[in-house]
Design a protein around this nucleic acid. Structure first.
Length: 471
RNA sequence: GUCCCCAUCGUCUAGAGGCCUAGGACGCCAGCCUUUCACGUUGGUAACACGGGUUCGAAUCCCGUUGGGGACGCCA
């Protein structure tokens, strides 16, 4: 039997990092066994679900390269079917009407807690005569859960987990307004969608026991479960906003690459020997949810940065230019000239090994976009002292006459510094001020490479700007 | 409070009784490379939570302790 997995987020916020990993694992598992990976939007909470959130999830998954099979299922559209199942349960005597008020429920919980029992509904309408029903109140439908025995789940990640049925109360499956609850909806939808493997966050483990009761009540085959340990923030607590963990789009905005994120997420809780850089193909052939570890992993931005830098270096220059231009234009609101793009493309090979993310790559790429007259950074300004300027002035005529390949430039300047200057100085004494004059910065890719890209005319003009600067 | 789960370097992990003097990666430190900053490269730092068992032998199995985490809604 080929597996069918699914990712089933509720659109009450954005696609967060944990959800992204859940989706990745579901997809990888399906791919590994030549099955299907499906997407279901759990939008039954009309109050909190928004079209924007749905859009963010779809976009996030697509951006991450986690496309799904078949049509997206919207849970809200299945409400009639869910009610049908609730009715079937009612007919079978496996569900009943409950008229308890919210106040009563709160009391029950408080009492149970005080008495050291598991908090929950006490079953007061479970076997009560329907004739006692209050006429002024609409009932909720509760599942008549087994009281004796236990639920055993053979979880692909957690192993065998057992919970006594007495720990589980009679859950509501249909609200008093007739809408189905999550617990009912997931089971019905997973069954209807032919889901064979439910791979989701650890926080759903206890739900699995109640869901299993439901499957059995309906006489449906129970899917395999795999509950993934949650991703924690650097402090060890559940990932939350205070960790700066927002939607996946925040990672995109910071300049993380989908491939890097996929690789990083994959290695969180799962490993394949000493392998660190893992291609999508390798991931598909190696991954098995059964190999996922049971312990929660902490999110480490330093390692993500390292992986991202790797994928950045591997990316082709043209794509990188496009990404950088897109970012820069979004920030400045102005266009990019053909000449600027030409410089960017020529300089990309020297730029990318110096960057970790797209945002710092874009920042360093600015040196190729800046036009005269340059504004010097404080450091650059300091480098351009009178002594340095005098050396540059002496160099200028040689530059005007010499060749302009980066190697020629280097040997020319080196010769000037080491042999022509009196007393002779090291290359750096001339190259550094030169860098400051040409780029306006103290840091850049190799200066002779930069000069070659700018061309002789532009460089001489920049040099003149600098030398004529009286101050 | 009740139930469930977890425990190897700071972090992610390898490890399924002898291959472990515990391996890799990130980070950190130092050297090399070098016109700056990176990249690269070489080396270093650093862990089996604790206590009992079982065994000829335990990071690996069992029990307990401690420490973390998760779930307990007419939310999903």
């Amino acid at each position: 039997m080929t597996p069918v997995t699914r990712f089933a987020p509720s659109p009450t916020g954005f696609l967060h990092i944990g959800g992204a990993r859940t989706a990745l694992f579901n997809r990888l598992y399906a791919r590994h066994f030549a099955g299907r990976f499906r997407l279901r939007i759990e939008d039954t909470d009309r109050e909190r679900s928004t079209p924007e959130a749905i859009e963010a999830i779809l976009e996030g998954l697509t951006w991450l390269g986690l496309d799904w099979d078949d049509e997206v299922v919207y849970q809200s559209e299945c409400a009639a079917r869910h009610r049908e199942v609730a009715d079937a349960l009612l007919d079978k005597g496996l569900a009943y009407r409950c008229y308890a008020t919210p106040e009563e429920l709160a009391e029950m919980r408080a009492l149970a807690r005080a008495e050291g029992r598991p908090p929950g509904y006490d079953g007061r309408w479970r076997d009560r005569d329907p004739a006692e029903a209050p006429a002024d109140r609409a009932p909720a439908i509760r599942f008549k859960a087994p009281r004796e025995g236990e639920q055993v789940i053979e979880d692909l990640v957690q192993g065998q987990v057992t919970v006594a049925n007495r720990q589980l109360d009679d859950m509501v499956i249909l609200r008093s307004d007739g809408s189905p609850t999550y617990m009912l909806s997931v089971v019905v939808d997973d069954h209807d969608m032919g889901i064979t493997h439910v791979i989701r966050g650890d926080d759903h483990l206890t739900n699995a026991f109640r869901q299993r009761q439901l499957y059995q009540a309906m006489d449906w085959s129970v899917p395999s479960f795999a509950h993934l340990p949650l991703i924690h923030g650097p402090d060890g607590a559940k990932m939350s906003k205070r960790h700066g963990a927002v939607g996946i789009e925040a990672y995109r905005d910071q300049g993380y690459l989908p491939a890097a994120l996929r690789n990083y997420l994959l290695r969180l809780g799962w490993g394949h020997g000493d392998d660190e850089i893992i291609s999508d193909g390798e991931a598909e052939s190696w991954f098995d949810v059964a190999d996922v570890g049971k312990n929660a992993a902490r999110f480490d931005f330093a390692k993500l940065d390292n992986l991202n830098a790797h994928y950045l270096r591997q990316m082709d220059d043209q794509s990188l230019v496009e990404l950088v231009v897109e970012r820069l234009e979004a920030i400045s609101g102005t266009g990019t000239t053909a000449e600027q793009k030409r410089r960017l493309f020529a300089g990309m090979a020297g730029l990318k090994p110096r960057a970790k993310r797209l945002d710092d790559l874009a920042l360093s790429a600015q040196i190729y976009l800046a036009e005269r007259p340059l504004t010097y950074s404080a450091d650059a300004h300091k480098l351009l002292n009178p002594e340095a300027k005098a050396r540059l002035a002496g160099l200028r005529p040689l530059l005007e006459a010499g060749g302009w390949e980066r190697e020629e430039l280097e040997s020319l300047v080196r010769h000037y510094a080491e042999n022509l200057l009196e007393p002779s100085v090291k290359l750096g004494k001339v190259a550094q001020p030169l860098r400051a004059a040409i780029t306006g910065s103290k840091v850049s890719p190799p200066i002779f490479e930069v000069m070659e890209i700018f061309g002789r005319e532009e460089c001489l003009s920049r040099l003149d700007d600098c030398l004529s600067d009286e101050e």
